[in-house]
Amino acid sequence: MSTPASVRVLEMQMLLLKRIWKTNLTLSFLQPLLFFLGMGLGVGSLVDGRSSSAAALGDVSYAMFLGPGLLATTAMLTAAGESLWPVLGGFKWDGSFEAMAATRLTASQVVRGQFLWLAVRMGIAVGGVAVVLAVHPDTRSWGILPAVPAALLCGLVFTAWITAWAASREYDTSFSNVQRLVITPLFLFGGAFYPVDSLPELLRPIAWVTPLWHGVELCRGFTLHSLGAIEMLGHVGVLVAWLIPGWILCDRFFARRLYR
């Protein structure tokens, strides 16, 4: 019986994960938990109860506003962490992609395997956040269940583009700038911590085209039941529209680099 190629690539990553799962899983829980507690409770105590804030947040507590957004940001941060150095390393340092390329696997199967691995990796981290949200009475909601795959879709967009970037680089010199100049600003301005509407008018359209904002809105919409079907479809559509070209680029760059 045959197993999909991407699953067979995933098996290798899972064996590696088995060696480091303790620290890795604890950390991926810890970071969003700290954000949730630190921001949710700290900022929440400043914000909650003021009528102007309540209007801006859409009549929910700050914790309720923030929590779902963290699903999407966690997916993005995990994607960035696992798709820069590890991807370049697979070509350059440990040669794991090169080893795969010598087998019957094709470049696009290697890409799919890498995406599947990232989905699992992000799933672990996002799942951690989801558990925190489910435990907190303010954010507890069945909507968390569909919000998790929504966050993963958002994370896959970042996986695709960041992987494409890393796969087309000869050196890692640009990687810390990707973190500093792309990921961190998105994290801060992508609508997870406050409504994009409270940004200066000039900056708002930037938030609207970035995939993170759509991911955040989608997660929040599911969790707080605050979005209509059309809006949701719109956000999914934008995310898919981002994902496809990133994926195509990955296929190209992997093929070009593995078979040259």
Binding site: M12, L16, R19, D94, A99, T103, R104
Partner: peptide, 20 residues
Amino acid sequence: NLDGELTLLDNLIVYGRYFD
């Protein structure tokens, strides 16, 4: 280009799995 962090046995199994 072996996987340094995996065991010898796992290296072979993983590679065999690439061939389905």
